[in-house]
Design a binder for these strands. Structure first.
Length: 612
RNA sequence: GGGGCUGUAGCUCAGCCGGAUAGAGCGACGGUUUCCUAAACCGUAGGUCGUGGGUUCGAGUCCCGCCAGCCCCGCCA
């Protein structure tokens, strides 16, 4: 327990304060506390972070709701609670005398020496106060978390639609990994199904060499062929029939079909990998086809559990609580009338496999799907079926992490000028090109002379960071308006702003500040120093929140605010020119700020720079 | 028709378990550089939180109705 105090500061402190408050309320109002315990979980101290810096560090709002039942003015109640707090030595060790403010808020301010000691502890802690997740049960490994994200389709190029899933999924996986969860990052690529029937059928007629020789056509051509195939499939009934036959052959394991299929997959896979390498995203490919052998037994299982209903020739599970036009329950179709399986079947097989204990499955405890919000209904249905089939263990969590559409600056779905979907590759290229143009203009204006490798490195880092950060910094639920101008802006809540804060600190180090020097006792006097200290110490709580809520924008907001506070500090408080005791204390703050920004950005998948 | 999501400053968005005078950034306007990178900092202006009810000591936040936009709705994923 003691060991945890040092490494989990704000959180453990909040927990300590909460129980101290609870005890104080208990002593001040024993009858009210006792009756609250009878009816529920006892009185809630309603501890929250202070809403404004002038209110201290925390506020407890418990007095307000007590006013009515106790028939006392809330400020009087607050005073009674504070009296009890003041006799608690443990409380006095961490907090100054509480203030009662407004209608009856109890404002708590942490002792400065307590804050300084924690800064000291974090300087010596590579994890910056973020604890590793507890082992599960008796010394067992923490349970596996599956994060399913990116998921492009074979024989198509990755486009802007894959951007959010890839970036958000990667960041969530990074946060979970940092917390110590074993994470399986799954790329559920679309490598099976009807589309292959039509593509192979079409290629047989127009480019048979593509089905026999690796890389006979390039991926761009393949995309064109795919589009043509889709067109024919929609227009031409005979083509449809042939395509369906082709799917059956493929699913039946016909060697020629399988070879063609595997060539197409290989080719796409290499293209995907180029994007993932650029974005520094690691993924374990496990496409839809992986679950092929399990589809039949999924349907069989559902049948055995009595969930399966034959309707109109299709095998369905009817949903509870979800009705269609006629007021009747909506089905999830798991086997088409032609006997084929569809995506719902595959998704069910995947859920079952991921939760199932090894070696029959992954043995996951938590499964997270990062896909667009348009699939919310689908997942809700599939999740319900999995639940009713008993495939989700008691402690298992199955979560859809939805995100909104990527829109252009006109508010409509992002398209190229020609009206095509934007290729992810082109989008990344443009971000880097714009970052490079910006940088060159700046270098010229400032009369700086940098070599080409510097320019390339900075432009690449800034450009890609901008794309990632812009996406991650927005609450993912809402649609996302994509704008190069905004994401590459040098001021505001953008990647360049955050990167610049790191660069400033690196600059201090270059100019002779030894960031790694240790300081016996940290002392701070300036407002900006304390503001920075307080901001730095929030990091652990922010990570805990992202882990639970799966909202990366909370981390972004924090890093932005930390950068702002640091920039104010940098602007108003000299570091290198400060006198000896202050100088080393300020250098220590610089180092912890740099470490926090670097770690935070790395959890977003964003590397930092020394100079820019 | 049913379901989901969204609606907060001119624009793009935050807003945690319901808490104090609703916050940023951009844009606009005005200031700051003998000093660690000014890719920065400071200040000013800008709000009926879509709308009408309800619950509450207290509602942007919770509940119900309505309006608007986007998305989904049986054999595509």
């Amino acid at each position: 327990m003691q060991a945890h105090f040092a490494s989990e500061f704000m959180l453990s402190l909040a927990h300590a304060l909460e129980s101290q408050l609870r005890a104080a309320i208990d002593r001040a109002f024993p009858e009210a506390a006792a009756s609250a315990r009878v009816s529920g979980a006892g009185l809630d101290p309603q501890l929250a972070p202070a809403s404004k810096p002038e209110f201290g560090d925390f506020q407890a709002n418990a007095a307000l709701p007590l006013a009515k039942p106790l028939k006392q003015p809330p400020r009087q109640i607050a005073a009674a609670i504070v009296d009890q707090l003041m006799v608690d030595t443990a409380f006095n060790a961490i907090c100054l005398k509480p203030e009662i403010a407004g209608p009856g808020f109890i404002n708590l301010t942490l002792r400065p020496e307590c804050l300084a000691a924690e800064v000291q502890a974090r300087l010596a802690d590579a994890r910056l106060g973020v604890p590793l997740v507890e082992a599960d049960g008796d010394g067992q490994e923490p349970a596996l978390v599956v994060v399913d994200f990116s998921s492009p389709n074979i024989a198509k190029e990755m486009h802007v639609g894959h951007l959010r899933s890839t970036i958000i999924g990667d960041s969530l996986a990074r946060v979970l990994e940092f917390r110590g969860h074993p994470v399986l990052r799954l790329n559920h690529v679309g490598d099976w199904g009807t589309q292959f029937g039509m593509l192979i059928t079409h290629l047989k007629q127009v480019a048979p060499e593509a089905l026999e020789t690796a890389d006979a056509v390039d991926l761009g051509d393949l995309v064109v062929f795919y589009r043509q195939a889709k067109q024919r499939f929609d227009d031409d009934e005979a083509f449809q029939t042939t395509s369906r036959e082709e799917v059956v052959k493929l699913q039946g394991g016909d060697p020629l079909s399988l070879k063609a299929w595997s060539l197409l997959c290989d080719q796409s896979r290499r293209e995907f990998q180029k994007i993932y390498d650029r974005l520094d995203v690691r993924l374990c490919e496990r496409g839809e086809s992986f679950y092929n052998p399990y589809l039949e037994s999924v349907v069989e299982d559902l049948n055995v559990s009595g969930l399966l209903v034959s309707d109109d020739g299709a095998q369905c599970v009817f949903l509870e609580g979800v009705t269609g036009k006629d007021g009747k329950p909506l089905p999830v179709i798991v086997q088409k009338s032609d006997g084929g399986f569809n995506y719902a079947t595959t998704d069910l097989a995947a859920i079952r496999y991921r939760f199932a204990a090894p070696p029959q499955g992954d043995g996951a405890r938590r499964v997270i799907y990062v896909t667009d919000a348009g699939q919310a209904n689908h997942f809700a249905g599939v999740f319900q079926v999995a639940q009713r089939a008993g495939w989700i263990p008691d402690a298992g969590r199955l979560q859809h992490v939805p995100f909104g559409l990527v829109q252009g600056e006109d508010g409509k779905k992002l398209k190229t000028r020609a009206g095509d979907t934007v290729r992810l590759r082109d989008l990344l290229d443009e971000a880097v090109e714009r970052a490079e143009a910006d940088l060159r203009r700046r270098l010229q204006e400032e009369g700086r002379d940098e070599d080409e490798s510097f320019i390339e490195h900075v432009a690449t880092t800034v450009g890609l960071a901008a794309v990632k950060y812009a996406d991650l910094s927005q609450n993912r639920i809402t649609n996302y308006q994509f704008s190069f101008d905004r994401m590459l802006a040098l001021q505001g809540n953008t990647a360049p702003y955050l990167l610049y804060a790191v660069v400033r600190i690196a600059g201090i180090a270059r100019k002779g500040g030894d960031l790694d020097a240790t300081t016996a006792e940290l002392q701070f006097s300036e407002t900006q120093e304390w503001a920075l200290v307080r901001e730095l110490l929030k990091f652990d709580a922010v990570i805990a929140e992202v882990e639970e809520e799966l909202l990366s924008n909370r981390l972004c907001t924090y890093l932005f605010e930390l950068s702002q506070v640091f920039n104010r500090f940098y602007d108003q408080v000299p570091v290198l020119k400060a006198e000896p005791p202050s100088r080393s204390c300020r250098l220590a703050l610089c180092r912890l700020t740099a470490d926090t920004l670097k770690l935070g950005l790395s959890l977003l998948g964003i590397p930092t720079l020394e100079r820019m």
